[in-house]
Design a protein around this nucleic acid. Structure first.
Lengths: 114, 114
DNA sequence: TAACGATACATAGTTATTCTAGGTATTAGT
DNA sequence: ACTAATACCTAGAATAACTATGTATCGTTA
């Protein structure tokens, strides 16, 4: 599981919120765990650094898309995040946006069944 | 054909080079024409402003992925761009990167035949 | 028991890329 | 003569992820 398989980081811009929110929609998770979970699900393509993910989580919380709560587990203090109803609505819109974007790129570059 | 169908502009980052180079790989085009052509092919999703596209073309040229030449057509001076061999190699790599990225996003958000 | 690596959270400042907002010049139509 | 469309251009703003660094705790092992 090589970390940092070289996907241009610029490609990522605008996609992180939907990646994080979708993952949180399945179950509450804490930051450090989210990094591993997203890396696992993307099969190593997305390997967020902590310095990248934590500020994103703070932004998502400021927007009201997630809520956080501290919880001790296995003798460790962890800050869990839970998606809100507003966040669920938001992720629905962003997913639709992603579909639109993906389809448009594929049309131009000529992949995806054209 | 409404310009600016709201695809988050951040999503675009990292994708413009491959969009432009792929279009140029089909035939030489000039900037103003490229904007319309990409808008047409993406069915209105990507509507670059001139202030966006021209600097991108200059960057692509500086990287050696395209070459430009002035040509008069229909009584108008136009700056045409032609993709180079180096550009063709580059766009191949970027397309592969796009496939990897797209697949990874779809895996995480749970679309695309998982 | 001291040292070290892994876990877990955090922020300041840099970098990269697109957009905004302006500008110039030419041509075609009214 | 005026206006809209064509065609090119750049400087500076805005945005978002990354780099680098810091703190603290826990488990393992020498």
């Amino acid at each position: 599981m090589e970390a940092n398989m070289k996907v241009n980081k610029e490609l990522l811009k605008g996609s992180t919120a939907v990646l994080v929110l979708t993952t949180l929609a399945k179950q509450d998770q804490y930051g450090y765990e989210l990094i591993r979970e997203i890396e696992r699900q993307s099969e190593g393509v997305f390997a967020f650094k902590e310095g990248t993910l934590y500020p994103i989580l703070h932004t998502l919380e400021a927007e009201g898309w997630v809520e956080s709560y501290w919880q001790v587990h296995d003798g460790r203090k962890r800050k869990y995040y839970r998606i809100t109803d507003k966040g669920k609505q938001h992720v629905k819109e962003r997913k639709a946006e992603w579909q639109l974007f993906r389809t448009a790129v594929d049309r131009v570059i000529g992949e995806g069944g054209v």
